[in-house]
């Protein structure tokens, strides 16, 4: 297992390097003029040239690339053209909100996928009804789900808030984690915790719904296959209850494809975050990217892309390890 962790970690570093390269290429290829953007539209051509030289855009590409890598290694993502702040500082401000949302959505997606998958594989009437619901649900895009949820739970029922991370009447604590739910628990303010959770529900559900359906379908398919395996028959021949057979013998062996699917869905969720944060006015990276695009704020866009990409690669690193835990046969490969 230790060797496997090492190998996978090596692969992780390689993927991150590849990601950095791609971002650099995009940065150089895309026709935008950050120097012009920085000095302003009315500045003279000399001022633009001077800024270019200062930023190193006149250097030969290989030199630019090494400098870019050096800066990355030091955690320097340059300054945002729009906010004039260091991109790292901006990200530090916006990332926790996104992380809180994405993590909640991921947990929700896995939990719902697991439950629905088990029900589906169980067959019977419940399974058939859920199957219809799944196929219907899977064809509804996230922005529509979000709007529907707002309509039902905010406009009609009025039981859940539909924008922001927290109500106006609360004071947002300053740290230590900038994860509102965690900070409020640490700070001992249960009212704030509850309010933060309420704000989380709709956006997290919107983000989680499609991934949950994908996970459920994958899980139910592999569960149905595992049900036919000889070792499940062996488990029954031991006189185990159906519940034990399902949870102890079938589920773990069926989890591989569902775990792979969960990892892939994280990618979709990180992409979906941009849309969902906009719908729910969630002050996270999605909103930050959304605003940066309008300004051609390249340092901001690439910085956020690098962060999301790293998150995706990290999550899949852990998915790989979970798979190896679930199936000892993978460990020796």
């Amino acid at each position: 297992m230790g060797a496997l962790v090492l190998r996978r970690f090596g692969a992780l570093l390689a993927v991150l390097f590849g990601l950095a390269c791609i971002v650099f290429v995009l940065q150089t290829v895309i026709p935008s003029d950050p120097a012009r953007a920085m000095v302003g539209a009315n500045a003279s051509q000399e001022a633009v040239e001077a800024k270019k030289a200062e930023l190193g855009y006149d250097d030969p590409l290989p030199q630019q690339f090494t400098q870019y890598l050096q800066r990355l290694a030091q955690g320097d993502l340059q300054s945002s053209l729009r906010t004039r702040n260091e991109v790292t500082a901006d990200l530090r401000e916006f990332a926790p909100a996104t992380f809180e949302l994405a993590f909640s959505a991921f947990v929700l997606a896995v939990a719902m996928g697991l439950g629905l998958g088990l029900l589906l594989a169980g067959g019977g009437r419940a399974g058939r009804i859920i199957r219809i619901f799944l196929i219907g649900g899977a064809s509804v895009p996230a922005f529509l789900t979000g709007l529907l949820l707002i309509l039902v739970f905010y406009s009609w029922l009025g039981i859940l808030p539909a924008s922001g991370r927290v109500g106006d009447n609360f004071i947002v604590p300053d740290g230590p984690t900038n994860l509102l739910v965690v900070d409020s628990i640490i700070g001992g303010t249960p009212d704030l915790t509850l309010d933060a959770l309420k704000h989380l529900i709709l956006p997290a559900l919107t983000l989680a719904l499609l991934p949950a359906l994908a996970i459920a379908r994958t899980l139910s398919t592999s569960l149905t296959q595992v049900e036919r395996e000889d070792y499940v028959r062996t488990a029954r021949s031991k006189g185990l209850t159906e519940r034990t057979v399902l949870l102890k013998h079938a589920l773990r062996n069926a989890s591989g494809p569902a775990l792979t699917m969960s990892g892939l869905q994280v990618g979709l969720m990180l992409g979906g975050v941009v849309v969902v944060e906009r719908i729910f006015a969630w002050p996270g990276i999605g909103l930050y990217i959304d605003q940066s695009i309008a300004y051609s704020d390249f340092p901001a866009i690439t910085g956020a892309t690098l962060l999301l990409g790293t998150a995706y690669v990290l999550v899949n690193f852990f998915v790989d390890l979970t798979q190896a835990w679930a199936d000892p046969r993978i460990r020796t490969v």
Binding site: D230, Y231, R233, T234, A235, G239, L240, D327, P328
Partner: peptide
């Protein structure tokens, strides 16, 4: 029937490769 399995009647199946749970 379940209560009888294991205690009164048990089984050895053909394929030893597939008859044991691979992750236990």
């Amino acid at each position: 029937m379940r209560a009888r399995r294991g205690t009164d009647i048990s089984a050895v199946f053909q394929d030893p490769m597939g008859s044991l749970n691979p992750s236990m």
